[in-house]
């Protein structure tokens, strides 16, 4: 079956402006968008640049905008995209280096701000620290994040203000603040309880829609907002 792809192109060494290029290729049943990109890259146009690694939705490298919405190319079955031309663009809100390759630095800088690691002040226990199933349930979904950036770059608040921590960083903050083994909750809450933190979330739900791991990110940001308010007054 033949399918048309309309792909965002920008090569900084020769293009002054980005443009869209159409490719029509023969696809096989069961192909994902990543399979199609690989086919184009290997057999049609070797200059096409995009990130990929695991091709099994766990590394988060191939997040891009497919038919207007952020998704993982390796998770998106071409079959699910209707019958029209498939439009592929880089993630919005980040500087574009080349074609689908964006500069993820602003994203990871924001992540770093929330201290995305375990903080422990009391002496380290000799054995592993167990959690009850109830304690684990609190962070189970939030810990599924693969840091692909689909959520943060789908957020209009982040587009307008790249200093906004964004859904991914806030979700990471939630994951540690609500972890029964972590002791850095207070300092993290102080960092995110900021005009460029929690309070720039306007419940637009683009992050939740975009998340390839189906995490209800807005729900967790709201839980953090509630925690911040209850701590303050």
């Amino acid at each position: 079956m033949k399918r048309k792809f309309r792909i965002f192109r920008y090569q900084p060494d020769k293009d002054k402006k980005p443009y869209y290029k159409e490719y029509e290729i023969e696809i096989e049943d069961g192909w994902t968008v990543l399979d199609a990109l690989n086919h184009i890259h290997w057999y049609v146009d070797g200059t096409l640049a995009y990130r990929r690694a695991c091709r099994s939705e766990i590394c988060g490298s191939c997040a891009m905008r497919i038919n207007g919405k952020n998704r993982l190319a390796c998770k998106t079955q071409i079959k699910t995209l209707g019958s029209g031309t498939i439009k592929i663009e880089p993630l919005p809100g980040l500087p574009i280096i080349k074609d689908m390759v964006v500069d993820m630095d602003p994203f990871f800088r924001n992540l770093e701000k929330v201290k995305p690691y375990f903080i422990k002040y009391s002496p380290l226990p000799e054995e592993e620290q167990l959690q009850t199933p109830e304690e684990r349930d609190l962070i189970n979904e939030a810990a599924m994040c693969i840091l692909c950036g689909a959520c943060t770059t789908s957020c209009p608040s982040f587009w307008a203000n790249p200093d906004y921590l964004g859904p991914a960083a806030l979700l990471k903050a939630y994951r540690f603040i609500f972890d029964s083994r972590d002791e850095g909750g207070k300092e993290r809450l102080e960092i995110i309880n900021d005009r460029n933190g929690l309070w720039r979330c306007h419940a637009i739900f683009n992050c939740t829609e975009a998340c390839p791991k189906n995490i209800n990110i807005t729900h967790y940001i709201k839980k953090l907002q509630n925690l911040a308010v209850n701590n303050q007054f």
Binding site: K69, I96, P156, N206, T208, E209
Partner: peptide, 21 residues
């Protein structure tokens, strides 16, 4: 590097973004 835009009108809008707009 190409600078990002401050808004992407072509981003697929779901219920949440329409409600916000």
């Amino acid at each position: 590097m190409l600078k990002p835009k401050w808004f992407y009108p072509s981003y697929r809008k779901d219920v949440g973004e329409w409600a916000w707009i």
